[in-house]
Write a protein that binds this DNA or RNA. Structure first.
Lengths: 329, 329
DNA sequence: GCGCCGTGTGTCAACGTCAACATATTCGAT
DNA sequence: ATCGAATATGTTGACGTTGACACACGGCGC
């Protein structure tokens, strides 16, 4: 900066003013300074800036490594929005499962140069890790609603699950079976509860849900059990991957999708349309969730008051994996 | 830090020595200082550290937003390894396609507080963006080999494509058709060339490859054309997603996989095993690529000499989407 | 003609840390 | 007893930036 100042024949302070467009600077002077910056390839030193201002213009994101497709997309959206707003994104990975690693991540985090944090971890797993979120640092939670201590943003899981369940019922199926996500996931829990409530609101008893873990393989295992029961004609899987496994299990047993059994997924994976048959699914919008998370965090950073954040809606995308049951035809 | 020093009855410098475990510190003193740090919840200020040392202990990753599954996994691995090595990860997203955005990302980058950069963008796209990589900053390229200006790490694309092609030929297929990735992708190009060379080394002429764009939808379009030709019995798709689309196209036309047509993918998507039929594919190891990229960058940072980095190998995973052709049975 | 305000620019200090140097103490070897 | 090396701690200044303050100039209203 000193070099630029000398080159332009001004003081360092004036250079600072030009860079930050703050205060009064004469037009001619500004030009000279900008010229000098250009010639010398000057870049402000962010460390010094941060030291002086106490702000880093950086957002930390804590996320499990090897995360789901949806979370990856959310991260992506967070990165894009943060960058648009002039913030850098610092990624703090947590290696799944190992408890002390989780705590360690938060400790590491405190040393990191961030102004605020977005946590993209399902809340039950958070609880399990007995992690205390450092205070003094604004935090936004995604995909969970751990108390009201911090604002959170999320997909409207309940609405999506209702759409899926009602679609199958409206086609004429007598009931809908459910392959749920892992017990410790809030998303899974909310999808399952919404499915149950939707059935009950139509006066139907919900069959015992099968337990999966989000993986296609677990969906396959659930499908192996479902295909034993000939009364099963409609299955709502808590995500697309498990739906893929369910489809495989039925197909292997010679049952056709959708003429014997209808299957609905949840997520809206881009390739779901190209599966065979194309999968009916609940389209999520992780990119909206991510952008919203950044916006909410920035409001927190500016000390804005905390409003209730709306959930992000979903849409049902009807494809060829669902149809009316034989009996209704 | 001053507070800690006062609390422990020592100077700031001694606190610094305790924190960095550098120089001589008496055992009793160290304990007092550590105690004080604990009590006051002291965390060193990374901005001041960076300002003083000129090192940020941070690595920047430049990546297209909405990236492929493989790149996402690579990012993940980079994050984990960087964190293990005590480095923070700053993610700099580039919104696909918009040229000036790409250049902008690099400009932004220069202001960012990173010691080195890992670029996870296919090289042809890099070229297209006419981006100049800022010098003075160590750079490692992933998934590309743009000249020898910077070290690069990558999957051994050629080996993987050879495995896939040979597998189909060894089953008895007369030739192998190819659904290639986008023209501007190095990976796609190398897979295609290796497929061609493998065929030619067996004295076979390579049929005209079909052009896809990695998406399942483009695979489906390619499949629509392939299914018109009854001589097609074996297809090697340049990634799993396109393979999914190819399978769908044949299935829709009443052709069975694998009894009528064998299909091989490339990537090793975790769900490929649960597709119907389970997909034969070339298993990549993006996590190894990511970790390797960090290791190579750290060597660069330490001014180490640049060796040739080995490519990361792949394995063929044979599943049920491939079988001998009817004629050979 | 006087003071005041708006504009344009410079000086200084401080942000938190750590390398370099200075100082003090202990201990073993001569 | 003396010296030097090893150990232990304190003092100072600088990293690059910017907020606070000071200063200088011209124009305006009275």
């Amino acid at each position: 900066m000193e070099d630029v100042a000398r080159e332009a024949g001004v003081s360092g302070q004036t250079v600072s003013r030009v860079v930050n467009a703050r205060g009064y600077v004469g037009a001619a002077t500004r030009e000279r300074v900008e010229d000098a910056m250009q010639r010398l390839g000057y870049r402000p030193n962010s460390a010094a800036r941060a030291l002086r201002s106490g702000r880093f213009r950086a957002i930390g994101v804590i996320m499990f490594s090897f995360s789901s497709y949806g979370n990856q997309r959310t991260l992506d959206a967070i990165a894009v929005r943060a960058s648009q707003m002039g913030y850098a994104l610092t990624l703090i990975p947590v290696e799944s499962s190992a408890r002390d690693t989780v705590a360690g991540a938060f400790r590491r985090l405190e040393e990191h140069a961030v102004d605020g944090i977005i946590i993209v971890i399902e809340a039950h797993q958070l609880d399990e890790a007995e992690v205390e979120i450092p205070d003094g640092l604004p935090v936004v939670l995604v995909d969970s609603n751990r108390g009201a201590a911090h604002p959170f943003v999320d997909t409207d899981q309940a609405q999506g699950a209702r759409l899926a369940t009602e679609h199958l019922l409206d086609l004429g199926h007598e009931t809908v079976w459910h392959v749920a996500g892992p017990a410790k996931s809030y998303s899974a829990e909310r999808r399952r509860e919404s499915w149950r409530v939707t059935l009950e609101s139509r006066g139907l008893a919900a069959p015992e849900p099968l337990q999966g873990d989000w993986s296609a393989e677990s969906g396959y295992r659930a499908g192996l059990r479902l295909r034993e029961d000939d009364s099963v004609t409609a299955v709502f899987a808590a995500n697309d991957q498990m739906a893929i496994g369910v489809v495989r299990a039925f197909r292997e047993a010679g049952k056709d999708i959708p003429s014997d059994v209808s299957v609905v997924g949840f997520d809206g994976l881009p390739d779901a349309a190209q599966l065979w048959p194309p999968l009916t699914t609940v389209q999520q919008h992780p990119e909206r969730v991510g952008a919203l998370a950044v916006d909410v965090l920035l409001v927190e950073l500016d000390g804005g008051e905390r409003g209730q954040t709306p959930l992000v809606g979903t849409e049902l995308v009807v494809r060829e994996s669902t149809a009316a049951p034989r009996t209704a035809r």
